[in-house]
Design a protein around this nucleic acid. Structure first.
Length: 497
RNA sequence: GGCGCCAUCGUCUAAUGGUUAGGACGCUACCCUUUCAAGGUGGAGAUAGGAGUUCAAUCCUCCUUGGUGCUACCA
């Protein structure tokens, strides 16, 4: 069987990360099985239509590497792939349903429906359409149509139980008594999701419907529609939701939910894919591999590995994936061509560099910047945003920060700094201008360590902290060498405890 | 309210009718080190509760609890 899946978003805004995961799973399932992945735009609700949303959706999808085989922009054998251009198909389909007595016209007004619901709620009944228009006689219907009363077309839900065999959830039972006669065609002539979805999935030969859990309760309606048409329904796989930290449905209020926003923040495509793939899926077989490329995911993916429970969208893990992928891509290039190292790192930092560092020409300052960045390579690969912290002190002397200089962990207190400073100043002063090198600085400071009987860190940490004012920075020898003898001594002498 | 879905460390998850319940993120201790970071070795940390089936239940069944989704002329 040729597997065909689809992603069918509504153009109401950006691509939501939850939608991205749904699309990813549908994509992986299709590709794993050598099938096709389609994109269909479900814009049957003009009220919610947002200008540019389709383009934005497609852009994010493409950026993620989720390319479709058929879709609104490239078309295909079942074009068009935008529902608003397919209305005749739905009208034709619904006529067929009425002929088969599986649908009927309903003339109830919004007010009538509201009132009916209110009364049902007052009696603690489930709010449901009471089928009053199903009892209309032929003449009544003709009269109402003749007087041009607006109407909708409702699905006539058959009686009985229905069991859905969901690929993720197994067998799920529904009683038709609890299911409403769904509106299929709205009074504006547009279909609702339920009709359009079924007609299109059938027409586009979709074999597996992979969609969010929110559709599970309405799946019986869809299956009954397939039955009424005499079509074979697709296989269903209902995915659990992505959640906020408090386990509510992932929402904008509690953080960013648009893929676009993560792109802007500098997350790598590979990292986002890797991360969302593992939110509710695991390769199984006791595997402990965490890093998967898209190709590896395609090879490994299966619906059996998809979880039933919702997963919290945890940014800390995303950051970690992002770091792993930045590093992996960086090393791939550098291993082939080591000369690329600095260029690549500078490129990483470029967007975050303060303007004063951007146009340094090619002189000493530029080299200094390059070296500084190289020495904090790991930090840059983890997160290039604080880059200015790692280099700013070269250009602007920092204030003395006791909270950085004194460190319980490094066993550094003010007493140590008091004895250390004069010794360090004396030792560094002895190095002649010609001999001023990183190596010489190191020798000199190692001498101080020995002379004072301290641990390495007790000397190196406070000096670096005084000179840079930063928790993290390039190494102390590098810093001293680069600042130069004069500036280093000035900074050290200026310290007042 | 009705109907449905879900339930292993804080988070993502692995595992099996019999395990010291494993890994990753995060947290943390120590080691290493040219500080920090990285790296290495450890640590704390979970089967929601109650019944039942069974020699044996985290795993199967039921109930409770909690969470969540749907209940529109939205998708």
């Amino acid at each position: 069987m040729n597997i065909r899946t689809r992603f069918a978003p509504s153009p109401t805004g950006y691509l939501h990360v939850g939608g991205a995961r749904t699309a990813l799973y549908a994509y992986l399932f299709a590709k794993k099985n050598g099938g096709q992945f389609l994109l269909r735009i479900e814009d049957t609700d003009q009220k919610r239509f947002v200008e540019g949303a389709t383009e934005s959706l497609m852009k994010s999808l493409k950026w993620l590497g989720l390319e479709w085989d058929e879709g609104p922009d490239i078309n295909g054998p079942h074009a068009p792939y935008t529902q608003s251009s397919r209305t005749e198909k739905y009208l034709k389909a619904v006529n067929e349903l009425m002929e088969k007595d599986a649908a009927y016209k309903c003339f109830c007004t919004q007010e009538e429906l509201d009132e009916m619901r209110k009364r049902q709620e007052a009696r603690h009944e489930a709010p449901m359409y009471d089928r009053r228009c199903l009892k209309l006689s032929k003449e009544e219907i003709e009269n109402k149509i003749a007087s041009q009363l607006p109407h909708v077309i409702r699905q006539k839900i058959p009686e009985g139980m229905l069991v859905i065999d969901d690929m993720i959830r197994g067998k799920v039972r529904f009683d038709s008594k609890t299911i409403d006669d769904q509106v299929l065609i709205k009074s504006d002539g547009f279909p609702t999701y339920h009709l359009a979805n079924v007609v299109d999935d059938h027409d586009m030969e979709i074999t597996h419907v992979i969609r969010g859990e929110e559709w599970l309760p309405s799946t019986p309606k869809h299956i009954w529609l397939y039955e009424a048409f005499g079509w074979t329904p697709p296989q269903y796989a209902h995915l659990s939701l992505l959640l906020n930290a408090d386990k509510t449905k992932l929402s904008k209020r509690q953080g960013d939910v648009a893929v676009e926003e993560y792109i802007q923040k500098g997350y790598l495509q590979e990292a986002i894919i890797n991360f969302i793939a593992f939110l509710g899926w695991h390769p199984g077989k006791g595997s402990e591999q965490e890093i998967y490329s898209m190709n590896e995911l395609i090879e490994t993916f299966s619906l059996e590995g998809v979880h039933k429970s919702g997963a919290i969208f945890n940014l800390e893990k995303l950051d970690w994936y992002n770091w792993q992928w930045r590093r992996r891509k960086f090393l791939e290039v550098v291993e082939k061509d080591p000369s690329q190292r600095t260029t690549l790192l500078l490129k990483e930092c470029e967007p975050y560099l303060d303007s004063q560092f951007k146009n340094l020409g090619n002189g000493n300052a530029k080299q200094l910047l390059a070296r500084a960045i190289e020495t904090v390579e790991e930090k840059i690969l983890q997160d290039p945003k604080p880059v200015n912290q790692y280099i700013g002190f070269y250009f602007t002397p920092p204030e003395f920060k006791p909270e950085v200089v004194y460190s319980e962990k490094m066993k550094v207190d003010s007493e140590i700094v008091k004895t250390l400073l004069p010794a360090a100043i004396a030792a560094l002063s002895e190095i002649s201008q010609e001999n001023w090198s990183e190596e010489q600085v190191k020798l000199s400071l190692v001498g101080v360590v020995a002379a004072l009987g301290l641990k390495n860190g007790q000397v190196f940490w406070p000096l670096r902290a005084i000179l840079t004012g930063e928790q993290f920075s390039p190494g102390v020898f590098e810093v001293i060498w680069a600042l130069g003898k004069e500036e280093t001594l000035t900074r050290l002498k200026n310290v007042k405890i």
